[in-house]
């Protein structure tokens, strides 16, 4: 349990998807102009991560890893399908995003109105595939670990995009050198925020 909590805190603050790995930057910079839209996207990303990461982990553990198909038959002990993992992961993500979109549309039109436009964007959000690949790479052992890590990463991403949006809303009134306006200053602010987040690294948990 203690371990899971550590993982959760670390994935939010220290291994933040944006500040430490720059994943999901494209939509991060494109959408983070107003707080409202970025909150919507943040929630959508967290939600999709919570669904896709465990599914991808299951697929990886029981279908793709070397010897993963052993539960089907002893003959498959040497079979290694891991070279297909990129393809399968992205397919699973695209399918689940599509599914989530349909389910949300059917059961909660108000939620759909809030999140709907973001969902198609998310299928190609690097953070989603990134989490799936990190889970594979780091060899997490249980579905609980994977879910906690996915949730933490999503919240970390949400936190980053919402706070950058808040800063960008204020900054429109500042007198920034012309060539730096827009994209340039966003990068530098993100960098400064990342430095601030690095102070969590020394935290003892």
């Amino acid at each position: 349990m203690e371990n899971l909590f550590n993982l959760f805190v670390r994935s939010i603050f220290i291994d933040n998807m944006i500040f430490a790995y720059f994943l999901g930057m494209c939509s991060f910079l494109a959408v983070s102009k107003t707080v409202k839209t970025s909150v919507g996207l943040g929630i959508a990303v967290t939600f999709v991560l919570l669904v896709t990461a465990p599914v991808n982990w299951l697929v990886d553990t029981y279908l793709l890893k070397p010897g993963a198909l052993i539960w089907l038959s002893e003959d498959f002990a040497d079979l290694d399908l891991s070279y297909l993992s990129f393809m399968i992961f992205i397919a699973v993500i695209a399918a689940i995003v599509q599914l989530v979109e349909m389910v949300v549309e059917k059961f909660s039109p108000s939620l759909y109105n809030a999140l709907g436009i973001f969902l198609p964007l998310i299928a190609v959000n690097c953070a989603i595939l990134g989490v799936a690949l990190f889970v594979q790479e780091r060899d997490y052992h249980s579905i609980a670990e994977v879910t906690v890590y996915a949730g933490g990463s999503g919240i970390g991403w949400f936190l980053a995009i919402a706070s950058l949006a808040a800063i960008r809303e204020k900054i429109t009134y500042s007198n920034i050198p012309k060539p730096l306006r827009g994209l340039g200053i966003s990068f530098i602010i993100t960098g400064l925020m990342a430095i601030a987040f690095m102070s969590f690294m020394g935290i003892k948990i």
């Binding site: 720059f22 012309k178 060539p179 730096l180 994209l183 990068f187 993100t190 400064l192 990342a194």
Partner: peptide, 20 residues
Amino acid sequence: LMILPPMALITIGIIIWVQR
């Protein structure tokens, strides 16, 4: 600091500044 992630962002910010 240069080998830590934040400096990549700031370097890019500066490159954009120079380019623009």
